[in-house]
């Protein structure tokens, strides 16, 4: 397995197991590599749009659908709490985990809480809508804003 794939899988599996972002040191230990090599792999994965790093290039801001920082989109599954980057990713986490999940978020206009439930039978959601203000061609110009 090449280093980039090993690093990518280790990051995603750490998020899935813990709900939190791993440090570069944790990933280096997991893949038996130097931290510098791991950070170089981070940059290649960011170029492939599989990671978004914090501005200083060391900590993971996003490993979509997982968020490395708290957001208003909270997913609970298997006793683990996750943060999602956006409404799309809020459903992406249950899809990635393949496990029953509860998604708690809000209506961005009224700030009313919203809850969605994913079971083996599929998605149970109240009447609500998803809206994206940024066209797909511009999503990655500023993915944090998107």
């Amino acid at each position: 397995m090449d280093l980039d794939l090993d690093v990518k899988l280790s990051i995603y599996r750490h998020f899935a197991a813990t709900g939190a972002r791993p440090s570069a040191e944790q990933i280096a230990a997991r893949v038996n590599a130097d931290v510098c090599d791991v950070l170089q792999a981070y940059r290649r994965l960011q170029a492939a749009r599989l990671l978004v790093l914090e501005d200083y290039g060391i900590e993971i801001r996003m490993a979509p659908p997982f968020s490395g920082v708290p957001t208003q989109h909270v997913v609970e599954s298997g006793g683990v709490r996750y943060f999602a980057n956006c409404a799309w990713d809020a459903l992406g986490i249950p899809a990635a985990l393949g496990a029953p999940s509860t998604v708690r978020s809000r209506c961005e206009w009224t700030m009313d809480p919203l809850e969605l439930v994913v079971t083996a039978a599929g998605l149970e959601a109240p009447p609500m809508l998803f809206h994206c203000a940024v066209p797909a061609a511009h999503w990655w110009r500023d993915i944090v804003f998107t």
Partner: peptide, 11 residues
């Protein structure tokens, strides 16, 4: 990429 309760909330 956000959730909304209704069309009116989006508008």
């Amino acid at each position: 990429m956000l959730f909304f309760r209704s069309e009116e909330c989006v508008r």
